[in-house]
Every structure is written in structure tokens, then in C-alpha cells.
């Protein structure tokens, strides 16, 4: 195994173990903090896979913004800080069975389908800010503009949803 492969395997292990902790820990806040570890490890995987700009966007938006939003939501819904035994449904075995089925089916299909394809990272073009900017603003301008409209719509929607209380007047 080369050094790149060792780094990839280590990052994958960190990501999978911390993701398991995200969905199983009985502490609400710990769950959000383990999510930070998972997303950071995934950013490292992006770096290994020659997607530099995507990795930094991942760190900025996911680790920076999304996790802070989640922590704020936990805080505003008065999440208790101690361990809570009823965070997971009582009959978790069917859920685990479905997840296992998804993993086996998807994993078997993907591994069987792409067994022979090699990922040659030495000759891959690194997706730096220059390369990514050029592709986004030359080839993908129209989807980019549509996305900006989507973001505006989401912004307006969030504001409308947060202002609903003042019109009800009952609480």
C-alpha cells in the first residue's frame, strides 16, 4: 500500500466510526460534535481524491455553517445535556436490518460493477480554485444561476416560516 492509500483507509475508518457514533450516542450534543469529526474526515477524503476546492467548501459550509445551525437548533429546542435513553426508537432492530440491507445491496452492486477500474491519482487534475472556477463559470453557468435562485427561495421561505407566529397571535 502506498502512503496515499494508507491515509485514505485511516480517514475512512475515522469517518465510519464517528458516523456510527453520530447515530448511536445517547447525548444530543455529542451527536452534533461527532458529526464534525465525520465531516472533517470526509473533507480529508476529498483532498485525497484530488478535489481541493470541494474539500475547503466542505469545511467552510458543513463544519462551519451546518453544524453551527444544528447546534443552535438543539439549543433552541431546549435539548438536555445529560444522556437520554429514549433518543432511539425502542424497536431499532428493523431499522438496523434495513440499513444493513442497503449496505449489502449497494455495496455488492458497486463493488461488482467497478471491480476493475483503477483510480489513478498521480495523473488526476487537482480541482484547485482556478480549475473549479473556470469550469463553473464556463461550462456550468446556467445551473449555477438556477442554484442562486434556489438559495434565494430558501432564504425567503425560512423568513416566512419564522414569521408565522406573529400572524397566529395565540402564543
Amino acid at each position: 500500500m502506498t502512503a496515499v492509500q494508507v491515509v485514505f483507509v485511516l480517514l475512512s475508518l475515522v469517518a465510519v466510526v464517528s458516523a456510527l457514533l453520530v447515530v448511536t450516542t445517547p447525548h444530543l450534543v455529542h451527536s452534533a460534535l461527532w458529526l464534525v469529526v465525520t465531516l472533517g474526515a470526509i473533507a480529508g477524503v476529498f483532498l485525497v481524491l484530488a478535489a481541493e476546492f470541494v474539500a475547503w467548501v466542505q469545511v467552510l459550509i458543513y463544519v462551519g455553517a451546518v453544524v453551527v445551525l444544528l447546534l443552535f437548533a438543539l439549543m433552541l429546542t431546549r435539548a438536555p445535556t445529560g444522556p437520554q435513553p429514549d433518543l432511539t426508537v425502542r424497536r431499532w432492530a428493523p431499522a438496523a436490518f434495513v440499513a444493513l440491507l442497503v449496505a449489502v445491496l449497494l455495496g455488492a452492486t458497486l463493488v461488482a460493477g467497478f471491480q476493475d477500474v483503477r483510480l489513478d491519482l498521480d495523473q488526476a487534475v487537482v480541482g484547485s480554485a482556478e480549475v473549479t472556477g473556470e469550469t463553473v463559470f464556463r461550462r456550468w453557468v446556467l445551473p449555477f444561476e438556477v442554484l442562486s435562485v434556489l438559495l434565494l427561495a430558501a432564504l425567503v421561505g425560512a423568513i416566512v416560516l419564522s414569521r408565522l407566529r406573529s400572524e397566529d397571535g395565540d402564543d
Binding site: T2, V4, Q5, F8, V9, S12, V45, L49, G107, L110, V111, F114, Q115, V117, R118, L119, L121
Partner: peptide, 8 residues
């Protein structure tokens, strides 16, 4: 590295 590592 084989492609199926990141896929897995």
C-alpha cells in the same frame, strides 16, 4: 487505489 474503496 481501486475505485471501489471510496465507493464502499
Amino acid at each position: 487505489m481501486p475505485l471501489w474503496w471510496p465507493l464502499l
